[in-house]
Design a protein around this nucleic acid. Sequence first.
RNA 1: GCGCCCGUAGUCCAGUGGAUAAGACGUCAGCCUCCGAAGCUGAAAAUCGCUGGUUCGAUUCCAGCCGGGCGCACCA
Length: 555
Amino acid sequence: MKQIIENMVRAAARTAAAGGMLPSDQVPDMEIEVPKHDSQGDFSTNFAMVSAAIQKMAPRQIAQALVANMEPVDIIEKIEVAGPGFINFFLRPAAWHPVVDQVLAADDRYGASDFGKGVPVQVEFVSANPTGPLHVGHGRGAAVGDAVANILDFAGFRVSREYYINDSGRQIKTLGTSVWFRLLALAGRAVDFPDDCYQGDYIRDLARQVLDREGPDFVNQKEADAVPVCARYAADRILGEIRQDLTDFGVTFDRWFSEQSLYDTGRLHKTLADLKAAELVYEKDGALWFSTRDFGDEKDRVVVRSNGLTTYFASDIAYHQEKYERGFHRVIDVWGADHHGYINRLAASIMALGKDREQFQVILVQLVTLLRDGKPVQMSTRAGEFVTLKDIVDEVGRDAARFMFLSRSYDSGLDFDLAVAKQKNSDNPVYYVQYVHARIAGILAKAKDQGLLSDTDFRKGSHLSLLKTSEEILLLKIMADFPAQVEKSAAFCHPHVIFTYLMSLASAFHAYYNRHKVISDDQSLSLARLSLVLAVKKVIRNGLSLLGVSAPERM
RNA sequence: GCGCCCGUAGUCCAGUGGAUAAGACGUCAGCCUCCGAAGCUGAAAAUCGCUGGUUCGAUUCCAGCCGGGCGCACCA
């Protein structure tokens, strides 16, 4: 549609220049956009304003000259010059009717595109340490990462979802120590539980399991031998629960990547060798430093400590290098906002190893503040005081939780009030959208009872010209806009664009529903309207599915 | 001190250069003999944090302030 109008404008500019009504035939960087108000037409262009400098004429005069030389195509009802020099195009209802057939034909692919041109993209998200259950913050990251992956996939990228398991290093050792000490206490030994260990009840449960498994003699092991056993067992169990919680949240991964495997396969070693060969590292104070400063970082970073151990940063460099070697052209990491200080060094290392800055992107998800009756809930993983993702899914449901997490830009902090989210009835926006789907399902069921529906009825589209009320035209316009919204959402990796879109489509439908009867004595009109609402139902479903939210037939 | 994110109605927020700043919650006034009222219609409510700059045009871009959140390890 925009293309048609742009072509008309370009043609008019040529004609006007040839006829001497415009000094120049130069076409500037104009935009065809959808105005905010109905009174400003269906589309408008700023051609005249951006041409003022070139043409050396007042914008309104340019606009008049252009309109005088325009040959409107048949879907155009009228063209006006307005405001400072906008040219507004008003379309006939018939211009919008084809969208119904487009939706019905494309079905669950309506809105999909080849925008991404099959470029392989990896989205790595959640990647929580297997030292405790997932909490609310992880939930938001999971919802965002999964939705971004869905949207990119729908927009024509080749997407792979990955979870990076930090199963090596100090936190895992701390986990093992925590379990070990709880285990000793269970066995009746007098121990001082270290302050820097994890204190949650789940540690006690794990200790009990290890004790049952290993037998009573296990307490006589040396700490150095026992801790790794505890650590491995605990990490495996916790990871299994994380996986289950994510599955229950509707999130699955194509691959779970182990940090430890970077050591085991020699990948990390190879990366360090590469860095040395490329002279990107140097020794100072007994440690090995990466000159990330040369690539935009504030300072250089240590990759091998003076005690000989590699840093977490070193694993991350190897891991990301490995990602690109697997063929991903773009890598997107979803992180909590508290890790933002880490972006520059990782980006620096990626650029140092020969990739473009654009190939690496971090989605920073701002903090979730969990509230209960308006008051913040204090949380600490170490102290074992937190509301888990599982708790939330159990309480408010998967759909409501996901919709809530995606309701606003991840650039903003989010207040998640359990008391409000628990209300399973009115206030939750997810029901507002799902209700549209269920309502339409009800209408279609009724139509079927009355024998109004058959497969062929929807294909012909011959009755669509009967759709001409303002509410119907609005629905058609909004549906026609869906592919563009998906593309925008994909281009910026912003799932909330889909949220906002769904709210506006739902609002338009509810208004229509209250004003007009879909099924009436007029069979042709009924068929046209049934086609319309069936299309709406499909678009709602497609949008919800991008956010990982179900579209129920009944509620 | 340095860096990142955010300042838009009483509250939560959408809006990456355009014409009258969108929606939700809350408030007020209405709508079910009729396809699901988890819905709809209407009203009141915003000097878009402040000051400059770029532009024909700035809530949007730039700079500097002010306020809030989060980071600044040879931890992960």
